[in-house]
């Protein structure tokens, strides 16, 4: 079969483009997105829950707008706007990463919100009735229980992000899908290139979901 021998030939010649450049950029972009997305998500969640209406509305508006518009559109906006508003020059990679972080932050803030709200109100009442203040109740009673709701959802978000970073290839930032486009341009073997990156994406997300599954089981073991 030509198809399989072509894949082998492509990998022999371009393995570095896929496995070194592509995978590392994809993982870097995903990790940045997860890390800053989690921080931003926490800030957005706090912004929604403090007793200050204008800030609540602002954060709700941001979350709703980001959740209600396509990610590709947001990446375009990031690509064109971020370099203009920042006083120092930024790379295309950074502009796209900023857009991805904002997008992820909004989803993560929803994960935090639902995870914390899922903890029974009676838990707060019991803690407060013992004399714990609001902060102690949150840190010692609510968050430890909410974490069990939040972590699995956060893991899913991580997996989604790995796949979503492929949209960044629109701007040729060097991640896996960009690698696919490059090699396809050189070899004119579209199906083979797509097969290679498809397999790599699958392996990445599959390993991650298995790791998360094991982690979740360890959390549950303590119940």
């Amino acid at each position: 079969m030509n198809y399989f021998s072509n894949i082998v030939k492509i990998m022999q010649k371009y393995w570095q483009v896929f496995l070194l450049q592509g995978v590392s950029y994809t993982l870097l972009l995903s990790l940045l997105t997860v890390a800053f997305g989690a921080v931003l998500g926490l800030l957005l969640y706090l912004g929604r829950s403090v007793r200050f209406k204008p800030l609540n509305w602002l954060c709700i508006a941001i979350v709703e707008i980001i959740r209600g518009t396509p990610m590709l559109l947001q990446l375009y906006v990031g690509y064109f706007i971020v370099p203009k508003i920042l006083p120092f020059p930024v790379t295309e990679f950074a502009s796209v990463a900023v857009a991805l972080c904002i997008n992820s932050g909004c989803y993560v803030s929803e994960i935090f919100r639902s995870g914390i709200q899922a903890v029974d109100r009676g838990q707060t009442e019991a803690a407060r009735s013992l004399g714990l203040n609001g902060r102690q109740t949150m840190m010692r009673i609510i968050l430890p229980q909410a974490i069990k709701n939040i972590l699995p959802a956060l893991g899913n978000e991580f997996i989604m992000i790995i796949k979503d970073t492929s949209l960044a290839s629109t701007f040729f930032v060097g991640e896996l899908m960009t690698a696919c486009l490059k090699v396809r341009g050189n070899t004119f073997l579209a199906l083979e290139c797509m097969t290679i990156v498809g397999v790599i994406y699958f392996v990445l997300t599959f390993i991650l979901s298995k790791l998360l599954g094991a982690f979740e089981r360890r959390l549950k073991a303590h119940d």
Partner: peptide
């Protein structure tokens, strides 16, 4: 003052974690 008032709830509300 709540430290001086113990409360017991219908649904127990013990801390599961």
């Amino acid at each position: 003052h709540r430290q001086k008032m113990g409360m017991v709830f219908q649904h127990f509300n013990v801390f599961p974690h």
